[in-house]
């Protein structure tokens, strides 16, 4: 995919008079010597895997190998069996699907890394929950996931999508940005609104640290997924109203990169500071690893 910036993406869409997912699926097909249908078929398999992960995750309360996390999705569903969430059923669905996915990840279930395993519960939760409630067909979901992937791929030209390189802003942060763009497209936003949603989501997660307790993809990663899924929805709602990021998206991504470089390595997946070295975290580490 030879599109390095969002400005180039906009130009490409305008030149070809096509939408983001149409441009990207054309490029993906030609880069890999396959046809567009084959690209879409592959994306479809990813969507189906995401759905099956949610289904399995919602019926399990098995703990992780660390015997620590894994039963939060069950707690959430128990609450919603007799309480409505403040923002209604779709809100319930999004955070439930998100927890179901990320909890399947920690118990060694099958997930789609999106963009990483520790952030796998953000994009699918929103695309699938919204599609169910708005009766969006499979093609719409495939279009949304292609757009999400395109956003992640363009960001990764400047920022390596790894907590060890740029902190959690590059994992759950980028997942939320991908999700905000994909949702905005599904809800009928134009390319400018899509890119503004991405910018708004990303801008508000600058400097997010990666300080996993005991080095595991559990605390704070698990709960960060549902929380940032809703963050993505908020960003999308703002953008759909025509609210713009005053800083253009490409410049926001430059800021993500610079922030990642300036962050101490102690806060980038090394578990040498932050939550990972709190008293409770160190006690848990002693208990799990001895």
């Amino acid at each position: 995919m030879n599109i390095l910036t969002f400005e180039e993406l906009v130009n490409e869409c305008n030149t070809r008079n096509k939408l983001i997912h149409e441009v990207i699926q054309d490029i993906e097909a030609s880069d890999n010597d396959i046809n567009v249908d084959e690209v879409r078929q592959k994306v479809k398999i990813h969507i189906e895997t995401m759905k099956s992960t949610i289904k399995i995750g919602m019926t399990s309360s098995e703990k992780a190998i660390s015997n620590w996390c894994g039963d939060d999705c069950e707690k959430l569903q128990v609450r919603y069996s007799h309480h409505r969430a403040l923002f209604g059923k779709l809100f319930e669905k999004i955070i439930t699907y998100s927890l179901a996915t990320i909890e399947e990840n920690l118990r060694m279930g099958k997930v789609v890394a999106c963009p990483t395993a520790g952030s796998c519960g953000i994009v699918p939760a929103v695309i699938i929950a919204v599609s169910e409630d708005y009766n969006y067909d499979e093609d719409t979901q495939i279009n949304a996931l292609i757009t999400a992937g395109a956003i992640g791929a363009i960001i990764s030209n400047k920022v390596q999508l790894a907590g060890a390189v740029a902190g959690c802003q590059a994992e759950c942060g980028v997942a939320a940005a991908m999700c905000a763009g994909a949702l905005t497209q599904m809800l009928g936003g134009d390319i400018s609104q899509i890119l503004n949603a991405v910018a708004l989501a990303m801008k508000n997660l600058l400097g997010l640290t990666c300080d996993p307790v005991c080095g595991l993809v559990e605390v704070p990663c698990v709960k960060r997924n549902p929380i940032l899924a809703i963050h993505a929805v908020t960003s999308s709602e703002l953008a759909l109203a025509g609210i713009e990021s005053k800083i253009p998206l490409d410049e926001v991504i430059d800021a993500v990169r610079q922030t990642g470089q300036l962050m101490s390595p102690m806060l980038k997946e090394s578990s040498l500071a932050g939550l990972a070295t709190t008293k409770t975290a160190l006690e848990l580490k002693e208990k799990i690893f001895g």
Binding site: M1, L106, G109, V112, A113, G149, G152, V217, E218
Partner: peptide, 14 residues
């Protein structure tokens, strides 16, 4: 990076 470098792999966690 291509589309499936970002939306992938389908994998066993965590």
């Amino acid at each position: 990076k291509g589309l499936f470098d970002v939306i992938s792999p389908i994998m066993i966690g965590p």
